[in-house]
Simulated scan of single mutants.
Amino acid sequence: MIEAPAEILTVWRQFDSFPMETLTKAWYYQHSGVTKQRSVEQMVAHHSQYGITGNCFDLAIWLLSAFDEAGIKAYPVGSNLKTKQAHAAILAEDQYGRRFLCDLGDQWIQPIMIDFTSEAFDGNKQSGFFPGAEVQVRPSEKGFEIVYFRPNGKRSSQVYMTQPIEREYLLEAAEYSQHHIHPEPLVEVRLQDKGETVHWEFDNWQSFLSTNAGLYPDSPVETLEDWIERIHEKTHYDKEFLLEALSYYKQLKSNE
């Protein structure tokens, strides 16, 4: 599979150290007014102050703005918008009109080409695009499907619609998402380990590492302070921010 050209990768790599997480959603929900979706200017300021990034909508909006600044044609795509299962990503085009999926929300290592008619397209399984898995791009009825092949033989898939989303509608879907907070906190981050990009995940008070060799659960911890230390170690997020966000999720869980 052909790699994205340098101009797309240059923008993408500005976000290499950016986790995807729902902690910022919970934190900002408490500090904001009626509008819950942050502007790019707010995201930049919060990242500078606390080290934080955001969920898939935050990252898609931020990445789209970066492509705009670089003069690269790009547009948002998504699935299940304005539902609790919504997901948003970006398609960027090179000078030949070839489209590349740029999905920070799922923490891809690098963009992947999704044009099936291109001579450069390879429909075989590919490594080096997604941490801890090989991927295969397949056509679907209204777009394309990504199939993930894990080291343990497990498969999963996700379908993307290639129809561009109007930017105004993306913001509406983002606003909907920021108003709906799942009671289980989530953090995903790409890390470098022994020459490999791996995927660390904190999901509903458990954490684990996905590598090309398999899935490795972390040792369990019980206290909020221990979780703050562990997440800070992986993300470098501000500890006071982590305390506030995780305490909010603890309160949500106790109200269930």
Rank of each mutant, 00 (worst) to 15 (best):
L23D: 00
M161H: 10
E233R: 15
E141C: 11
R99Q: 15
A173G: 08
T10F: 04
H232F: 12
P164D: 09
R190T: 07
G33R: 10
F121H: 07
T24H: 08
P185L: 12
G143R: 02
L9P: 03
S157Q: 13
E134F: 13
Q251D: 13
M20G: 02
Y28E: 05
Y29T: 11
L186Q: 03
E222R: 09
Q49C: 07
D122C: 12
W27F: 15
E119D: 15
N152H: 13
K73M: 13
Y50R: 12
K239E: 13
I109S: 06
A45W: 04
Q42T: 08
T197G: 11
L81Q: 03
N152T: 14
G214Q: 08
E188Q: 12
E225Y: 09
D58C: 11
H232V: 10
E21H: 02
R38H: 02
L243S: 09
I8F: 02
F130W: 03
F202K: 01
A88P: 00
V135H: 02
L191S: 09
M113Y: 04
P217S: 08
R99H: 13
G78L: 05
Q49H: 14
Y75T: 00
K239M: 12
S39P: 02
E145F: 05
Q158G: 09
K82D: 03
A213K: 14
F241N: 08
F130R: 06
Q85E: 14
